[in-house]
Write a protein that binds this DNA or RNA. Structure first.
Lengths: 247, 247
DNA sequence: TTCCAGAAGTGGGCTAGACCACTAGCTTGT
DNA sequence: ACAAGCTAGTGGTCTAGCCCACTTCTGGAA
């Protein structure tokens, strides 16, 4: 049973193998035997070295899709479907994955001097300018969150020309500035809605809200965005997946 | 400059190398040149194969300590210190890492029939029994959180004999049942404090609180614990680190 | 029938090479 | 002075093996 891989060097073999296995896992093709073929079997099937197979498996293990048991084999992690694990996506992508229709109402969008807090978050020098974007985020046309976003102005020239009502901010950044987010720090806390936020969200003043502060970094660890999002507690909850050591 | 490793097979070489490099990074020994030696140099220094070095580096890269630039080299990620990233630790460990003194007041500790929700969370069958542990968690002798914990009774016989006022629950589980947590799912939401919780936490009824629901799994993906923790919003915030794809 | 030793199979670890794409700096020719 | 091309060095990928610790199964001895 020879599986075929593209060997023109455009896509690494271990990536192709990982993708192929990921699909088979999603289709539950291993469910009968409850486990994957051994590393040596896979190496033979794909006609690659065992090290390459191990590299592919490691990727899947890191994602929590599979786990190894020494001396026994490799197994599919049949944990309940990730209803929605919070990851490095923007609001739009997140709502879509939840089956909701995202939209935005831009309340403010201007270039301004960075405040001390923003300067520190974005690691900017004194006098640096930022884009300030204030949006009401809707899901199925109902208010879901109130968001304040700061972006270093020098990184995104002419950002003001884009329509952020329809487009995902992250999409604009990737497509027009080739700016990809790589990792982020988030701080979550509970708070009571202030008068202004309560009015926008359509809840009473003092109602509980979930506040998420997020700083997004590029691959070279440069801060790209600093955001402050206030979610309605009755409509939103954040799900995380935690793992030990990561190995 | 030959670095020495223990080669008796007790600790994998790549682990030793990763540890050695981690220490050097923390001591900022690479700061002058701003980068690490090349993989080939490291292989020579430690007298191992380059693949082994790469394995060590991959571990560090996963932790966000370093990053690679193709054709250039490997660099230390000089991001600000992780003040406190939420990870798979219990309350006690978390408070200690924050520099606070943890303690507990056990309000309830009994064996009981699992409710439907708990049954589902812990993947138990009908009629299964669980330990129910209700604790007020203190930091520096001030109320920080109100916690309800459920554990499958069949996994932890005689759990009732331990003093959970002084000891960390996770410590008891590891030391006495060899039960190690491997990963967890957490759901965070904001809420208003109920009367009972408010009294225990010493806040007014309706004050905002951060509710964390956590299910902890073993390495073989078996649910070990289901917890529901209500944190005072004015004393606690949760910090997470998010990364793309994990590669 | 029971028990135990061995064999076979598994993932974990490691080696000593190889070729590739990419970057930066140097050299050389204009 | 400048640009083009070369070269050395880097991480990315891959190979074809090897030994180890561990589990499970199986067949033979007690």
């Amino acid at each position: 049973m020879q599986e075929t891989l593209t060997r023109d060097g455009t896509v690494p073999l271990h990536t192709q193998i990982a993708e192929a296995l990921r699909i088979k896992i999603q289709n539950e093709e291993f469910k009968e035997k409850e486990n994957l073929p051994s590393e040596r079997e896979l190496a033979e099937q794909y006609a690659v070295s065992r090290m390459t197979v191990r590299q592919a498996l490691q990727k899947l293990r890191h994602e929590g899709l599979i786990y190894h048991e020494r001396g026994i084999g490799t197994f599919v992690n049949n944990r309940k479907i990730d209803v929605h694990t919070r990851n490095l996506n923007g609001f739009s992508e997140e709502m879509i994955s939840l089956g909701l229709k995202p939209s935005s109402r831009v309340l403010t969008f201007q270039r301004e001097l960075a405040s001390d807090e923003v300067m520190q978050n974005l690691q900017l020098g004194a006098g640096a300018e930022v884009f300030y974007l204030e949006r009401l985020r809707l899901a199925d046309d109902e208010p879901m969150a109130f968001e304040r976003t700061y972006l270093p102005a020098y990184l995104f020239p002419k950002l003001e020309e884009f329509d952020l009502t329809k487009n995902s901010l992250y999409q604009v950044l990737v497509e027009n500035y080739d700016s990809r987010m790589h990792h982020a720090e988030e701080v979550l806390e509970a708070a009571a809605a202030t008068k202004r936020v309560a009015e926008q969200l359509g809840v009473r003043t003092g109602a509980p809200v979930l506040v998420v502060r997020r700083i997004v970094f590029s691959e070279s660890n440069q801060p790209i965005e600093s955001a402050h999002t206030v979610y309605r507690a009755d409509r939103y909850r954040a799900t995380f997946y935690l793992s030990k050591n990561g190995a």
